[in-house]
């Protein structure tokens, strides 16, 4: 499946079917962050229910502490 993640075209395995699995794939699930799918923020409690489909535009932003 082809996705645009943070503006960059990426191919992810077809067994990634929802936002939670996508975050797992990028090992980002234990980080505080915000996910946007096609310019709509996905509620944190609905990550497992929000499907990702071919050519979706996904933004993933995680908070860091450094400064």
């Amino acid at each position: 499946m082809k996705l645009f993640i943070n503006g960059e075209e990426m191919i992810v395995p077809d067994d990634v079917t929802n936002v939670e699995e996508l975050l797992d794939y990028f090992k980002l699930n234990n980080k505080a962050g915000i996910v946007e799918r096609n310019q709509v923020i996905v509620d944190r409690s609905l990550h497992a229910e929000e499907a990702v489909t071919n050519e979706d535009r996904i933004e993933i932003v995680h908070f860091v502490g450094g400064g």
Binding site: K31, A32, R44, F63, V64
Partner: peptide
């Protein structure tokens, strides 16, 4: 949301 535990520094 929740306070992150650890993470990149």
């Amino acid at each position: 949301g929740s306070v992150p535990m650890g993470g990149e520094t």
